[in-house]
């Protein structure tokens, strides 16, 4: 049974469709990355799953329970939503104690969580004196209070130093290995790549990828950048390689060949046979960032959405004239 499943889930805010006919299944264990540009619907989806907002259409289940009855599953769900939120004048301990009381948990659980997130010893200080990283740790602690089967973390490493990031990554892995599902929403692609087993990618509220991380990485393509020993041989080099059947693009002083590493030796031989010595031959594999940007576009999501809306409006105006 998936930990989260949605069917044609849609949420509109006026004319804006934040989540658009979303159908997905999130596995019941492991670390799952939720990715998408700004305005792609990640936060709206998380809020729907937590019962903070209601969908306009469609259905969803969390831990097998319908989202129309969040009381049936919230005791098994922990969340850090859009940054930590606490009473600034209260200590870390009392903030957690307040949330523990709300969930009917014993005070001893607060001690356990403070230990897990490394705030033991600082727990009696007011949250107002905490750095962003410490608040983030406290936010993760609040999400862990109920020892959840499903942990939803929005930008969990925000504000953490490199050591803290590694620590949180290890914590997420430990939780996943213990059988929990950890759903991580983040803009840090390197974090998602390092931590996640499964990936969900949204764009304009629509699902554009849902599957294991390795499936996405196999979509990565490669190319080979070559450069002739003498710059005036760049054009002839492009011609002979193209004549041999490869697709080429001429760059500034180099040639990009659409080929993977297996063709490197043949490309070198082709150039050599034409009397051109290569001073550079580099096999370049697409990065996770390249794959992500090719899927979602290279423009800020909200700006792209605004431009699209503007274009549509202009089109409508034009059509009526």
């Amino acid at each position: 049974m998936p930990s989260v499943s949605t069917r044609d889930l849609t949420r509109r805010f006026g004319s804006v469709v934040a989540v658009n006919s979303l159908t997905l299944d999130i596995p019941d264990s492991g670390v799952v990355g939720l990715l998408g540009p700004n305005g792609s619907g990640k936060s709206t989806l998380i809020r729907i799953l937590l019962g903070l907002i209601r969908p306009t259409e469609g259905a969803a289940h969390v831990l097998g329970q319908p989202i129309s009855h969040p009381a049936a599953y919230v005791h098994d769900v922990g969340a850090l939503i859009e940054g930590p939120a606490f009473v600034a004048g209260l200590s870390a301990r009392r903030n957690l104690l307040s949330l523990a009381r709300l969930r009917g948990l014993p005070a001893t659980r607060v001690d356990e969580v403070l230990e897990i997130v490394g705030l033991t010893g600082r727990d009696r200080e007011p949250v107002s004196q905490f750095s962003l990283g410490m608040k983030q740790r406290l936010g993760i602690g609040a999400a862990l209070l109920s020892d959840p089967r499903l942990l939803i973390l929005d930008e969990p490493t925000n504000g953490l130093d490199p050591a803290g990031i590694v620590e949180v990554r290890a914590l997420l892995r430990t939780l996943a290995e213990a059988g929990s599902t950890v759903l991580v929403s983040s803009h840090l692609l390197s974090e998602i790549e390092a931590a996640c087993d499964h990936l969900v990618v949204l764009r304009f509220g629509r699902l554009i990828f849902d599957g294991p991380m390795r499936d996405l990485l196999t979509q990565a393509s490669a190319h080979i950048d070559i450069a002739a020993e003498h710059p005036d041989q760049t054009a002839p080099l492009a011609e002979v390689v193209a004549a041999a059947g490869w697709t080429v693009t001429t760059l500034d002083g180099a040639v990009r060949v659409a080929a993977d590493g297996a063709d490197a030796a043949n490309i070198n031989r082709t150039a050599h046979a034409a009397g051109i010595a290569l001073r550079q031959l580099v096999v370049v594999q697409d990065s996770f960032e390249d794959i992500f940007l090719s899927m979602t576009g290279r423009t800020d999501g909200e700006l792209a959405a605004a431009r699209a809306a503007g274009d549509a409006e202009a089109g409508e105006v034009g059509g009526t004239q």
Partner: peptide, 18 residues
């Protein structure tokens, strides 16, 4: 109102949906 302005309301409702 500080529950709302601080964002704490998100945690409260997520923990107590009633």
């Amino acid at each position: 109102a500080s529950d709302t302005s601080s964002g704490l309301i998100r945690l409260l409702v997520a923990a107590q949906p009633h």
